[in-house]
């Protein structure tokens, strides 16, 4: 079976990892060392008392590469579980962005109108600036940011995605 050129696909991988020094470094080092993509990565402790963190990684590659990424993650000693949310049924993924717009006049009111349409909340306001908070799927955030670009967008801070399977399935 000669390898066929495979298409590149996106994947969201969740990793439950023992919360110990260096664990995140191992995950990131794995991606850089083996040349895998990281589109975004989030990490935070999730299980009180059990000392575990959840890492959500948005990545892309051929199906064979994605399979490798999972196998490589799974063999890290502090890793408890690895789940490919994209593969294993439907999932929801959200991220949050803080977007700063500096403008006045028509641009300023247009920015506010767009923010309203996206249900982004202004969480800081000054005479010449807004900071909007927007939560949603990555492409929604992308669209919002694109629309604000000509309207005085000066700074963006994004969290990267948090993802979880739909229904009763757990990691």
């Amino acid at each position: 079976m000669p390898p066929v050129e495979q298409p590149v696909v996106n994947a969201v991988i969740s990793v439950l990892v023992e919360n110990e020094t260096g664990a995140l470094g191992r995950v990131i080092g794995l991606f850089s060392g083996r040349g895998y993509n990281i589109d975004s990565l989030t990490v935070a402790p999730v299980e009180d008392g059990r000392n575990r963190s959840r890492i959500n990684i948005a990545t892309s590659g051929t199906p064979m590469i994605i399979e490798q990424i999972k196998a490589q993650l799974d063999r890290l000693v502090p890793v408890h579980r690895v789940s490919d949310l994209t593969q294993e049924g439907p999932h929801v993924a959200r991220e949050m962005a803080l977007v700063k717009v500096v403008s006045s006049g028509e641009a300023r009111s247009e920015a506010l109108r767009i923010a309203n349409a996206f249900r982004a909340r202004p969480i800081d306001t000054s005479v010449e600036s807004f900071v909007f908070e927007l939560t949603g799927a990555t492409d929604k955030l992308d669209a919002f940011i694109e629309l604000l670009r000509p309207l005085g967008l000066v700074e963006v801070s994004r969290t990267g995605i948090a993802a979880i399977a739909r229904g009763s399935r757990v990691l």
């Binding site: 079976m1 000669p2 390898p3 064979m64 399979e67 490798q68 196998a71 490589q72 799974d74 063999r75």
Partner: peptide
């Protein structure tokens, strides 16, 4: 050359490390 490696065989791979399997050859 990978695309010419054992082109007509069906392959069985026994390995203790899941990351060795389907890494290079399906």
């Amino acid at each position: 050359r990978l695309d010419a490696f054992s082109p007509d065989s069906r392959k069985i791979h026994i390995d203790i490390d899941p990351s060795s399997i389907n890494k290079i050859v399906r």
